[in-house]
Amino acid sequence: MRLRPPMESDPSDDTGPVHVPLGYVVAHEKWRGSQLAQEMQGKIKLLFEDGLNLADFYLSSRSCIIYITEAELVAGNSYRKRLVRVRNCGHLQGIVVVEKTQINEQYFPAIQKFVVLDLGMVLLPVGNQMEAACLIVQFVEEQSQVTRKNPFLRKTTRVGLSETSLVRTVQQIPGVGKVKALLLLQKFPSIQQLSNASVQELEQVVGPAVAQQIYTFFTQSR
């Protein structure tokens, strides 16, 4: 059985809910003027705030994005404490977006294992900030669609966002496309359940060949 990192607390962290006006994304001040922010402006409304110690972007008071740059991934594991604190916030669902390039590709398996298997969070790789901007804009648009369809979901729109992100994460497994990802998540609703599934259980959903690929993917990551 895998043990999750222990609970940590720090009075300087913005552990309380961040107020995000409807239709806006709240971004850390450090992203002002960046390529990422410039690519998003005009497509979504950005509000910049200083003192956001946990997340880089808040899509709502309940959902956020932690952005790990190419340089941060190469520099070491300093990002891990922040990820653990986001995971431990009961009111906050975090999505981890990581710059995966030729320079830091060798470091990617380690953060993938830590985020997906150890923390049970969603991880999405991007090639650059332009690609990341498109991803965030898409998240905001999907979240807005859910809210428009049912205004009562405004306080719980992280559900739809979480489902979309989980599908993308499962699609990173070799041999798994969008259809197979959806089928797998119907039977195994979380990354933890999927990673602990036996080959026999997986075969019932995707057949023997893909089942073995999925099982190998998770056992090798451990």
Rank of each mutant, 00 (worst) to 15 (best):
R2I: 09
L3I: 14
R4E: 02
S9Q: 12
S9L: 12
D13M: 11
G16F: 10
V20W: 01
H28I: 05
L36H: 09
A37I: 00
A37T: 06
A37M: 10
Q38W: 07
Q41Y: 05
L46R: 00
L47F: 13
D50L: 12
N53P: 03
D56P: 04
C64F: 09
C64R: 00
I65Q: 01
T69R: 05
E72Q: 06
G76S: 08
N77L: 04
K81W: 01
K81D: 06
C89F: 15
I95S: 03
V96K: 01
E99A: 02
A110I: 01
I111E: 01
L117T: 10
L117G: 02
D118G: 05
M121P: 01
M121C: 13
V122Q: 04
L124E: 02
L124D: 11
P125L: 14
Q129D: 08
A132C: 15
L135S: 00
V137Q: 13
Q138D: 09
F139T: 04
V140C: 08
E142D: 13
S144D: 01
T147P: 01
N150S: 12
V159I: 14
E163S: 12
T169L: 09
V170I: 13
I173F: 05
P174N: 09
G175T: 05
V176Y: 08
L182H: 07
L185S: 14
P189D: 15
P189Y: 10
I191V: 14
Q193L: 15
L194W: 00
S195A: 14
N196S: 12
P208H: 13
A211Y: 06
A211E: 06
A211K: 01
I214R: 06
F218M: 11
Q220V: 13
Q220H: 13
S221P: 04
